[in-house]
Structure formats: C-alpha cells, structure tokens
Design a protein around this nucleic acid. Sequence first.
DNA 1: GTCTATACGTCGATAGAC
DNA 2: GTCTATCGACGTATAGAC
Lengths: 206, 206
Amino acid sequence: MNADALGALDSAAPGVARPRAPTGEKGRVTRAAIADAATKLFSKHGFAGTSVRAVASDAGTDSALVIRYFGSKEQLFLETMPMIGQFEHITAGALDGLGRRLVDSVLGAQQATQISAYRALVRASDSSLVRQRLVQAQQDMFVTPLAPNLTGPNPELRARLVAAQLSGLLDALAIFPDEAITAADRDVLIELYGAAIQVLIDWPTA
Amino acid sequence: MNADALGALDSAAPGVARPRAPTGEKGRVTRAAIADAATKLFSKHGFAGTSVRAVASDAGTDSALVIRYFGSKEQLFLETMPMIGQFEHITAGALDGLGRRLVDSVLGAQQATQISAYRALVRASDSSLVRQRLVQAQQDMFVTPLAPNLTGPNPELRARLVAAQLSGLLDALAIFPDEAITAADRDVLIELYGAAIQVLIDWPTA
DNA sequence: GTCTATACGTCGATAGAC
DNA sequence: GTCTATCGACGTATAGAC
C-alpha cells in the first residue's frame, strides 16, 4: 500500500529542518553507531529483512531513536547504502578494450560490499527514491562519461545499452545465484562478455 | 527477520495435506477470485506493496480465507505470478539471427503482463523460493535449449551470459525506468543489442 | 465443507515523560 | 538527548458459526 513511497519528498528546501534530529556530540556517536549497524544489516538481510528494531538493538539503542535521527526506515536505507563503486574513471577512459575493463571492474566488486549493496537496492526498488538513486548512478557512472566519447550513431542509446549489459552481469552475480558465472574463470568472462560490450562501443563494425 | 523464508519447504511429501484448503465447487470459485485479485494487485504494486487484506477485499472475501487457501502470502505470490513468456522455441531455433530474435521477443513482452511479473519477482527475490523460480526460468528458457546448439568453447557459460544480457535489457524495461531505451526505435534496439548478443552465440569470431 | 470473527505477535512510526 | 508507551497496520492462525 505504501510501496510507491510518496513521503519524504519535501527535502527540497535546504534550510528546512528534517524531523528534528539531535546535534550534540553524544548524538553524533549514537548516529554513527546506528548507521554502522544499518549498513551491516541492510547488506546482509536486505531492506525488508531488516527491522528498525534490529538496527537499534545492534547499535545498542532504541528503535524510536533510529526514526528520530533518520526520519524513516527508507531514509536510513538511502543514507547508509553506498552506491556501487566508481566506474567513471574507467568509462571516461580510452575506448580501446573498454568492454573488457568494465567487466573486470564489475567482477572486481564481487564478494565485496558493493555487490550486497546493489542487491539490496534492486530488491528495494519498489521505492521511487531507491529507483531514482539506481537510475542516477547508472547515468553518472556510464551514460554521462561514455556517451560523448562514442562515435557513430545513437551514442547515448548505445551507452545506455552498455549499462544494461553490465546490470545483467550484476544480476547474475548479485540477484540470481548463477554459480556457473560466479565460479567461471575470470579471464574467460572478461574475454567473452567484454567482447559483447565492445560491439556496442565500436559500433558500427559492419 | 523472516526474509530468507525457510518455511514451506515441507512440500516434499506429496500426499501430506497442506494446511487444509477447501475442495468443493464454491471453494473453487472463491479460490479463483482470490488468485485473480492477487495477480492483479501483485502485478500493480509488487509483493511488499500488496497486503493479504487488500487481496481478500478485492476478491470479496476475508484475509483468513486467503491464507487458508494458499498457505501463506509467499505461496500465493508464487502460484499467481506467471513467469515471463515462452522463449524456448526461439532459443532452440536457428543460431543465425538469434540475437535479434531474442531482443525482439523481450521487447514484444513490453507493456504486457510479463514485464510486471518480472519486476515483481525480482523485487521479491529476497525469498529463496522466488529466487529459485527466477533461476529455473532462466535455465529452462535460455540455457537448456541454447547450450547444446552452441559450437566453440564454453557453450554453457556463453548461454548463461546471453541470459545475463537479456536480463540486463529486462532491467532497463522493468526495474529501472530507462525512458531512453523504452522510447527508442524498436528496430534500432534489435539491431544494436541483437548484435551484441550474437557475438556470444557465434563465438569465436576472431 | 465454506466462511466469519477474533486474536496474536511484530512491524514502522509518534507522543511525551525523564 | 534518550527511552517508555502506544498506535494502527501487517501476516498469520484458530475456533466456531452457517
């Protein structure tokens, strides 16, 4: 019923206080403890699988304080789940061999915090704010840096399709448990999937 | 807390009755009404965004009955959300131009019920049963029919990577709202993404 | 055999006492 | 600045009315 989260859109006004949160020093360490617990639990059990009470307990405090500090469970999630790593410097680099380097980077994130974060974010993408963040991240990491460097027709669309290919690879690592891909030789994966991505980068080849 | 759904695994024994469900005729129409409402609401608002009480209300009955008939909300979800369409006859077909035909099929499912179902399933993939269904569907639709037809090295891995590419395309249609892809000319999409997929089908080209 | 009424425990969130 | 008490809604379960 509340899935399409309409709340918390008033954050536009910069000076307007959120549902007032503590500001002192004791407050800061408590807030940090909550954030740490949230990052850990959200990564491990996802958004739906993590209760505010569990976060509070892990942080050694109370559930009411969690809400008081972060406004809502959804905002706590958004503030504590980092977006998957920095790809911009790769995407903005040389076009030659770019497909392989992108695959290499995604595989490098494997088993790291970033895969868990991606998983949690995708599964929580009922929320329009979470969706916004995912779309924005794709845009920032792939489309914006890559599209201007592409020659040939439809550069932006091709950049977005490259991003789609990478999200498909991330799906196999983070969403579906595809052991055949997870366990596959990394160099083989880079060669195969990298070549498939490179087709869109080098277009037209024919 | 309950996210990694361990329940409902006792369905192994075939004769053992589930939490007994009605069997008469009146019961069958009620069950059908619940299933219809569930399909509609789950597609529209997702798993988390749909309450058992809402399904019951839409079906003109009571939430207790919904549980009585289907055992749990999760089982209701699994029984009423159809997996995305039949790709087997395409995947098992000729390798020539297969990439294009696969993209065409995925795009054909656009704006249909199947996209909504995919979205709902991915977002509910906290549940291991839902995950199982997604993996099984990928296996049945792509890997099993395609892998035996592929020549060259790593046929199964390549089939799985083709599936990954298609799930990336589905992400752009169903999970992230990528307007640039949704609104793009269909023939262009087929040409570009189809070629990228074909690389893995025809491997090695070099 | 089919359904209604009611209840239990937990959730996110709020109000107000220390 | 922190915590207790509480709210309404949730998934689920059961007893017993028709």
